[in-house]
Amino acid sequence: MTTTSTAPLGDITGSEAALRGFLAGLPGVDQVGAEARAAMLASRSVKTSAKSYAVDLAISMIDLTTLEGADTAGKVRALAAKALRPDPSDPGCPSVAAVCVYPDLAGTARAALGNSTGHSRVQVASVATAFPSGRASLETKLRDTAEAVAAGADEIDMVIDRGAFLSGHEGRVLDEIVAVKQACRGPGAGRGGEVHLKVILETGELGTYDNVRRASWLAMLAGADFIKTSTGKVQPAATLPVTLVMLEAVRDFRAATGRQVGVKAAGGIRASKDAVRYLVMVNEVTGGDWLDPRWFRFGASGLLNDLLLQRQKLATGHYSGPDHVTLD
């Protein structure tokens, strides 16, 4: 278990030198230990009623995602219908947490999901800031964000500038996140309050767990509401050890500052069994406070179908098949 100094964090973001000093001072990650712990937690067996609970919880945590060049308004509407009622044959099946699309389709998604407010509202998440590479000027990124917010996005998934982070310009990364966070409060974001900002670290490009830990703290210090593993466009995407490191970071951040930040594991999670492993890890690392769609999400598309097949198996007692869920 890591312990991070709880020195006053207010001064850290004041200067680049202080920020760099703080991030460099974060304890290193024991790579072998992290991987062994993730593997050990993955060996837990979750059965019967616990499995049923886990499957429903996982469904309610999904950001149902389509991020393809070939996306159309029709595809987004179909996805929205599925998000609201994943299993039309079973009214007891929970809705997913959000639909995640490119900014130009955020309006379509919002319209298809309806404008209901309240707890059961399915959110519209929009990627922004020159997703997935993040290689554009700050003006372009802010414009991208503002458009998504104006179109009705409830959540913005931004990518960090990995090039700047890896070359030691942590201050630039921080300033960008702060600026995008500011744009999330801009005009159009009035409905239901502030737009949530998820910061994608793209851990597959960061190289080491130490970098993942530093980038997590950087994003949280800059005001991220969620830290997210990957875009899904780079391999490796979400892995259990990487998510473990990020969960430790949000746990320690809350201990240090009192502010709770969510985690989103995105990319490469396709099987129910994998999803349940993530939930076990969330419970073990951060505790039950994070076992809620407000604090933990899965970015996935194929995962939902596998969860639905498991759900049907648990309900009927016989194995279901891909003919009994939608083709996405």
Binding site: G317, H318, Y319, G321, D323, H324
Partner: peptide
């Protein structure tokens, strides 16, 4: 019985 009731068979 599991194969007989399997919907993908």
């Amino acid at each position: 019985p599991w194969l007989a009731s399997h919907l993908d068979v």
